[in-house]
Deep mutational scan, measured.
Amino acid sequence: EPREEEAEKYIKRANGDYDKAQELAKKDGNEEIAEAIKEYKKR
């Protein structure tokens, strides 16, 4: 799923820090991806 791939990219950029990844996504205006990262975190 493209959303998950995007989320993974942010998580990698944030060195595995989900909260930081979420912030990066929000900064880029990717609210949807920020949500996907939140879902990811719950797994």
Rank of each mutant, 00 (worst) to 15 (best):
G29V: 02
E35M: 11
I37F: 02
K27P: 01
D28R: 02
A7R: 04
G16V: 01
I37E: 01
K27D: 09
A34S: 06
I33L: 10
I11M: 06
E39T: 07
E23K: 06
R13W: 13
A34W: 06
G16H: 05
K27T: 09
K9Y: 14
I11S: 01
D17Q: 03
K41E: 05
Y10C: 02
Y40G: 02
E32S: 11
N15L: 08
Y18Q: 03
E5S: 13
N15D: 08
A25R: 00
D17T: 01
R13K: 09
I33G: 03
I33R: 02
I33H: 02
K9L: 09
K41W: 09
A7L: 14
A34F: 05
N15E: 07
G16K: 03
E32D: 13
K38L: 13
A7C: 13
K38I: 10
I11D: 00
K20E: 06
A36V: 13
A25F: 01
R3Q: 11
A21Y: 00
A21Q: 00
K20S: 05
E5Q: 12
Y40T: 04
A21H: 00
K12F: 10
A14W: 01
K42Q: 12
E4I: 13
E1D: 15
D28Y: 05
E5W: 14
K12P: 02
A21N: 00
R3S: 12
E31C: 12
I37G: 00
Y10T: 01
K26R: 14
A14H: 01
K42I: 11
R13D: 07
L24Q: 08
K12A: 12
I33C: 04
A36H: 07
D19S: 06
Q22T: 09
L24I: 05
K9S: 11
K12L: 10
L24S: 05
A34N: 04
D17N: 08
D28E: 12
D17P: 01
Y40I: 15
D19G: 06
I37A: 00
D17Y: 02
A25H: 01
E39S: 07
E35G: 05
K38D: 06
A14L: 02
E35A: 11
E6I: 10
K20L: 15
E1S: 14
Y18T: 04
G16N: 05
G29N: 06
A21P: 01
K27S: 11
K42T: 09
Q22I: 15
A21L: 00
P2V: 13
E31M: 13
E31V: 12
K41C: 06
K12V: 08
K27C: 07
Y10S: 00
A14E: 02
K41H: 05
K41F: 08
A7D: 02
G29D: 05
E23P: 01
Y10P: 00
K20C: 06
K9W: 15
Y40C: 07
K12R: 12
I37C: 00
E23A: 10
A34H: 04
E31H: 14
E5H: 10
Y10G: 00
I37N: 00
E8M: 15
A21M: 00
R13C: 14
K20I: 12
A14Y: 02
I37L: 05
K42R: 13
G16I: 01
K42S: 11
G16C: 07
R3M: 15
A36L: 15
K27Y: 10
L24D: 05
K42Y: 11
N30E: 08
E1W: 14
D19L: 07
E35L: 11
E6P: 06
A14M: 03
Y18H: 04
R43G: 05
Y18K: 03
D17L: 03
E1V: 13
D28N: 04
D19F: 06
I11C: 05
K26E: 10
R3L: 15
Y18A: 04
R3C: 10
L24W: 08
E23Y: 09
K27Q: 14
P2Y: 14
Y40Q: 05
R13N: 06
A36Y: 15
L24T: 04
A21W: 00
D28L: 03
A7I: 15
L24M: 13
D19E: 11
Y18E: 02
E23M: 11
I37Q: 01
K26P: 01
N15K: 09
A25I: 01
K42M: 11
I33K: 02
K27W: 09
Y40F: 10
I11R: 02
A34C: 04
E1H: 14
A7E: 04
G29P: 00
E32G: 09
D28W: 03
Q22F: 15
K12W: 11
E4P: 06
A7G: 03
K9H: 10
E31T: 11
P2C: 15
E1Q: 12
I11F: 04
A36N: 05
A14T: 05
K26L: 15
E1A: 13
L24N: 05
K41A: 13
K27H: 09
R13E: 10
E32N: 08
N15I: 03
E5M: 12
E31K: 08
N30R: 15
D19Q: 07
E8D: 06
K20F: 11
A25P: 01
E5I: 14
E23N: 05
K26T: 10
E8S: 06
D28A: 05
K9M: 12
N30L: 13
E35C: 06
A36M: 15
D17H: 04
E8L: 15
A14K: 00
K12M: 11
E8G: 05
I11P: 01
D19T: 08
N15M: 08
P2Q: 14
E35V: 07
R13P: 02
I33S: 03
G16P: 00
Q22L: 15
A25L: 01
K9I: 12
R13M: 14
D28P: 00
D17K: 02
G29K: 05
E39P: 00
A34Y: 07
K20D: 04
Y40A: 06
R43S: 07
K41N: 04
R13Y: 08
K12T: 08
R3T: 13
R43L: 11
G16S: 03
N15S: 06
I33E: 03
E32I: 09
A21V: 01
E31P: 14
E5Y: 12
E1F: 15
Y18I: 05
N15P: 01
